[in-house]
Design a binder for these strands. Structure first.
Lengths: 136, 136
DNA sequence: GTAATTGCAAATAATTTGCTGGGTG
DNA sequence: CACCCAGCAAATTATTTGCAATTAC
């Protein structure tokens, strides 16, 4: 693996490790606060710059579905997500990619489809359970 | 039945008409500029306020997939979209909703899924045509 | 009449960028 | 030792909000 023009600074390493360690699909700010515990002088701008670089290099995914901020995923393989509208937690969905749909879209629009994204919305298991207990 | 809010001001009417008239999935700013031709005193804040109301009432859709700004769709029925990564145009995709996938997600995560969204990315027919001449 | 809604401008929120000094390869 | 990259803070961008005046019902 050739690291062309990429420098492995300790900031970059800690940011990537922080993201890979969690399954919570965190925001840039969460990563910043978390990584700052290890690197107290870390700045938020550095977090954003590194997240953008890592995204361009295909090391991570940026998830920016229907909200005012981005979440990040340390797993760069395309996969789907479920967002709980009550607690705002985001879960990975282990469903096979519907690549056949890309073909259908190409036929319909006469375009070239290179990727797609899908996100599900609703109430997560934990929130379903919580309401059950507190509901009259 | 209490009709709280929801006055048909001329601003609201023009904003909705402007959005319904186009197939371009425009931004709030585009709608503002366009509607301003008819209502010169219109302000951008009013456009945002009305778009949010219309969204809440289910009259329109807000599309905020993977970008720093929202686009709006005058068709409130859930449907998929294709975004051309070259020219940034957005197209409606006429594909049946994959509601069966919602069931699969519910089974996998033990959650309640109420909706989902899907977006396709690539190069649109027009952009393919433009490059066809220069491709080997 | 009166409460929702407007225009305006200032406030937020998330992210990006310019500068300069420091650390990596 | 060249030059990428960090830290810091100010700039940008999209959107929201407070307020007094206006307007629809």
């Amino acid at each position: 693996m050739i690291r062309k023009g990429k420098r492995m600074t300790k900031q970059r390493r800690v940011i990537l490790e922080t993201l890979r360690r969690t399954k919570s699909h965190p925001t840039a700010d969460w990563i910043y606060k978390e990584a700052k515990k290890e690197l107290p002088d870390l700045s938020l701008g550095t977090v954003y710059r590194n997240l953008n670089k890592l995204k361009e290099e295909g090391e991570i995914l940026e998830l920016s579905f229907g909200s005012t901020f981005s979440r990040y995923d340390g797993n760069p393989e395309n996969h789907y997500h479920f967002l709980c509208l009550q607690c705002d937690r985001m879960y990975d969905v282990d469903l096979p990619l519907q690549d056949n749909l890309e073909k259908l879209v190409e036929k319909e629009l006469g375009c070239r489809v290179t990727s797609h994204r899908m996100e599900f919305y609703g109430k997560c298991g934990e929130c379903l359970g919580n309401t059950k207990n507190t509901m009259p």
